[in-house]
């Protein structure tokens, strides 16, 4: 198989798609987190500021989902088809909550009636919570594996099959992670009363995350044993979970010193490292067949042709820096604490 800098193209593409989805989780993750906290703010004014903190940038963050979806479709079409059709219900719900999240932000301030604003506040917050949970649930199902036939087609049950204890645990953990992450982001963007309130909330958020992360880890080691195989076989790789642990441990330390900028960097790093952990647990598989193991989807049997992957690498090489440049410009334009002033459109 053709290689580029010592790695074959499906592996490169595994890294690209993984990188894009971890980028999405880091960026839209703080939007979800901010949304999950939304109803904890009691005053209309606070909610308005909290929304303004993410308003100019959440659109750009959602781009990562669109690009991630496109590259997954193009790079691993077999996986894309199987995963989305097998996870039909959670993906449809995810899409509907993406709609509600988006329009809630857009429409909330278009009317002044308190009931109108309250309605969109609830819709925004519930959507954000559900999006965070559903992302985790899908990841949980991928990690868990599912029954596949020899054409890599899903052969399990329909409606509620996606709800199993492990995926629910991963879902709750991802909600907790995003709440911690989003809480810190809001602290960076706010001041005054809301800032004080957030400091209190964040402490609870950190405890919520650490507890749910520990439970999920223990559950994984006891019941989803295929995930830790790679670490048993190659002890050097133990450094990955160790780094995750250190990165997580650093967050409460930085938060207690009120170094929120650094804390945000470490929650971001934690998300990225969790993706690395998942990548090691899976590689080179993408979706484990829980019945006949030979039916598992791997990066090799799911990949598009090498030619397509090469073309797409070109896209990413040219487009990636452009995307980063736009993002840099937008974040720089809206840098700093939110002021409620004449700059709303």
């Amino acid at each position: 198989m053709e290689t580029f800098l010592g790695l074959d193209y499906p592996t490169w593409w595994f890294l690209v798609v993984g990188g894009l989805f971890s980028g999405y989780a880091i960026l839209d993750g703080f939007d979800f987190g901010a949304g999950a906290w939304h109803m904890f703010f009691r005053q209309n004014k606070s909610r308005e500021i909290a929304l303004k903190a993410i308003d100019p940038t959440w659109h750009g963050n959602e781009v990562w989902l669109v690009i991630g979806g496109g590259t997954l479709f193009a790079g691993f079409p077999v996986f894309y088809g199987t995963l989305l059709s097998a996870m039909y219900t959670p993906f449809i719900l995810f899409l509907l909550f993406i709609i509600f999240r988006g329009i809630s932000i857009k429409f909330r301030n278009m009317e002044e009636m308190p009931w109108w604003r309250k309605m969109w506040d609830w819709s925004y917050s519930i959507s954000s919570i559900m999006l965070a949970v559903l992302l985790g649930v899908v990841v949980g199902n991928v990690l868990n594996g599912m029954p596949l036939d020899e054409n890599y087609e899903y052969i399990g049950g329909g409606f509620f099959e996606f709800l199993n204890p492990f995926s629910i645990l991963v879902g709750i953990t991802s909600l907790a992670l995003f709440m911690m992450h989003g809480g810190i982001y809001l602290l960076l963007k706010t001041e005054g009363k809301l800032y004080d309130r957030l400091q209190d909330l964040l402490k609870k958020g950190i405890i919520f995350f650490i507890v749910s992360y520990l439970i999920t880890t223990v559950y994984t080691l006891l019941y989803v044993t295929h995930l830790s195989e790679v670490f048993r076989e190659n002890q050097a790789l133990f450094v990955v979970p160790l780094l995750v642990f250190l990165s997580i441990a650093n967050v409460p330390r930085l938060v207690s010193k009120k170094k929120y900028g650094w804390a945000f960097i470490f929650t971001s790093l934690t998300i990225a490292l969790l993706f690395v952990l998942v990548a090691f647990e899976l590689f080179p598989r993408l979706l484990l067949s829980s019945g006949i193991e030979a039916n598992s989807i791997t990066i090799y049997n799911a990949a598009a042709s090498t030619k397509t992957l090469k073309i797409m690498m070109g896209f990413v090489a040219v487009g990636g820096p452009l995307v980063l440049l736009y993002s840099f410009f937008v974040y720089r334009t809206f840098w700093g604490k939110v002021k409620v002033d004449a700059e709303s459109y």
Partner: peptide, 11 residues
Amino acid sequence: FGSALAAEGIF
């Protein structure tokens, strides 16, 4: 089709 969608996202 996937390539075109990905290009749409990126570019």
